[in-house]
Structure formats: C-alpha cells, structure tokens
Nucleic acid binder design. Structure first.
Lengths: 194, 194
DNA sequence: GAAAAATGAATGAACGTTCATTTTTTATAC
DNA sequence: GTATAAAAAATGAACGTTCATTCATTTTTC
C-alpha cells in the first residue's frame, strides 16, 4: 500500500475528529475549533481542505459511505445465487458496523437528520446499486418478496443501526451467534415464502 | 374535552415549533429566537416554561414519546392473543407515524443522535413496556422467536422510521396495502417458524 | 530562496440567556 | 358592571459567550 502523503494524513485526521465529535456530542456541539484541536491542526487549516463546515460534513459523509460500500461488496460477485449473495453482503455490512463503530454511528446519524445536504445523501445512496440489482434478480427469480427496495432495505440493513446503537450503550452484547440470528430474521422478512 | 388553558396553548405552540424547526433544519439550526418567533412568543417566554434549551428538547421528546405510546396501545388489551395484540399495536404505531409525521420524524431523529439526555431516553423507553411484555408472552408460548427485545424491535417497529423517511422525501407512497405488506414482513421476521 | 502549507489572533455574526419594564390577569371593593 | 390594586405573565433589548471564517504572518518544503 502506498504510504499516505502528509496532507492526506491531515485530511484523514480531520475526518476522524469530525466523526468522533459528531457521534459523541452531536453536530451542534462539534465546533470547528474542537475538530481542529482533536486533529492536531489549526482551525485555519481546515479551510485548506474543506470549503466550510457544511462541506466538511458532506465530504466526511460521502467518504465514509464509499468505504462502507467498498466493504459491503468486497467479496460479492454476480455469479453468486441471490441467497448466497445477499448473505454475503449482509454479513459484510454487519462486519463493517461492528468493526468501524464510529463510522457506522456517524452514517446512521446522518441518515436520520438534516445534517447532510439532500444532494450528498442522494449521491451516497448510489453506492448501494449492486444490492438493489441483486434484489431485482431475486424478485425475478421469485425468491424475494415483490416489494420496493426501500422496504427490503428497511427490514434487512436498517435494523442493524438499531442493534449497533444498543450495543454501543452496552444494552446488548453481540457475538457470532447474535449476528447469525439477526441475519436469519433479515432473510425471513424478505424471502418469498412458498 | 376541557379547553386548554392559555399557558397550555403556549406550551403546545412551543413544542410544535421546536419539532418543526428541528426536523427541518436540525438541532443546530433551531435557535431559541426562531422557536419563539414560530410559536408567536417572545424569546424570554420560553424560559417561563422550560429551564433552558436542553430541557426544552428533553421535555418535547418525553411528551411526544408519551403520546406515541398512548396511541400505540390505545386499542390493545391483554386478553388478545399474541398475534392479534402484536398486529394491533404494530398497526397503531404505523398509524401514528403516518398521521403525526413531524412528531414521528422528531422521535427518530432523537433516537439516532446525542441530542437528548441519556436519562430522558431511558425514561422514554419505559413507555414500551406493554409491547415487551407481549413479546415475552409470545416467546413463552413459542410463537415468537427467542431473541432479545432489541432484536424484535429492530425488525418490526424500527423499520417504519426508514419507510416514513422515504415517504417524506416522496421516494415512495404509502397506502393501506403498503402498510399491510410491511406488517407481514415484520411478522415474518419475528414469528417462530414451525 | 521561492512557493506552498500552516498558523492562530482577529472579526463580526449569531447564539442562549437574563432581567428591568410592560402588559395582562385576577382579586377585591363599591 | 366598573374601578382599583396587587400579582402573574410576557416582553424584548441587552449581555456575554461562542462560533465559523479570514488573512497577515510564520513555518515548511522543494
């Protein structure tokens, strides 16, 4: 892997600091001065990398969304059966949310608030296209219920946000078995019953 | 119904204004001055009803959560079978989210951000106890999957937030049939398969 | 030593909150 | 009813703070 350039390191540090402050304190309590301090950078420097605070938040969102999607689809290929493919993607998504806790919390916060420009949100959704295509194939083959992809997403991927939130607050502990159970519920909800 | 006192009218107006501004602009762009203006009240008046901004937000959250719960359980009684009872509660929740759109969006924003005190969140959750009891009964009878209630919630009630968000952005339109389909997916995910 | 990157004090706008003043309501008397 | 006075509610200008953003200056890189 190519070593990151110095400015790339700073950019990453700013993104990490933004994520950290936003998920812990909320957008309204994540001032530029604190973001700068946490990233070991002067406030003015942020403006060399981002236009303003809104641009910073939008870019952080898009960057994380892209890395989320990359993770989700990294082992997937279109030769897989629908069920195989779905299981594969779903488990990678769960894995991302378990490993990249802060980033996942950030995304779910963005997706449920007007924090992010509507335009950036639209942009972020595009990354999920392979999953939508897979679902379409599943519906054509009659193995997945015939409903819009919003519904499929709501009952398979979206619930993970709730579970990860609960895990974060230590209301539940998540292990291999828990993930498997959650997967089965996701599949049960969208599979076409014979 | 007893007519609301004048101060109760003002309180309600403040709550409505807070909800409206927060769901449209986010907490960080819902200043007290705007809330006051929208409620036709002077900024200082807010402090006669609430201690400060944080207290305002917490109280709005708790009040709406209570009205949400009241709606959810209004037709439910413990003589119902588990399946009947669940269907009843679930549909009332869907109804609340369809009719009280702003309030529902506010709740989902609160539940996914650090906007609300952790204490108030804990307080808000208590309202759902009858649903948790029902699930417990269902598990004892072997009609509902044996998993923690966080998981049951994540796959039945939580998905509605996603769907309502999509509806709000006019990505989908929701009718009677759509709700019925969503209900069946919720039930499919948590029912114990023979 | 020129160019690029980074700094951080300074700026002005916007915010949450206060409180001296005004308005409205209530209680009491005629 | 009306007048009056005390109490309660509401006001909004003012205050101190914090914030996002800028830019003259300094530091680093090549």
């Amino acid at each position: 892997m190519q070593p990151l350039s110095k400015s790339e390191i700073k950019r990453k540090a700013l993104i990490k600091a933004t994520v950290c402050l936003v998920i812990n304190n909320g957008f309204h309590a994540a001032p530029m001065s604190k973001i700068a301090k946490m990233a070991n950078v002067s406030p003015g420097t942020i403006y060399l990398y981002f236009e303003n605070k809104q641009d910073l938040i939008n870019k952080v969102y898009l960057e994380i969304k892209a890395s989320f999607a990359a993770h989700a689809f990294k082992d997937f290929n279109e030769q897989m059966t629908v069920e195989e493919g779905f299981k594969n993607i779903w488990k990678q998504i769960a894995d991302f949310k378990l490993m990249q806790v802060d980033e996942a919390l950030f995304l779910s916060q963005c997706d449920n608030t007007p924090m992010i420009d509507e335009e950036s949100k639209k942009e972020g959704i595009k990354h999920l296209q392979p999953l939508l295509d897979l679902w379409k194939r599943g519906q054509e083959q009659g193995v997945i219920k015939n409903c819009c992809h919003y519904m499929l997403y709501a009952y398979t991927v979206y619930p993970l946000a709730f579970l990860m939130n609960a895990k974060q607050k230590k209301d539940i502990t998540i292990n291999e078995q828990y993930i498997q159970d959650a997967y089965l519920m996701a599949w049960d909800s969208i599979k076409q019953s014979k």
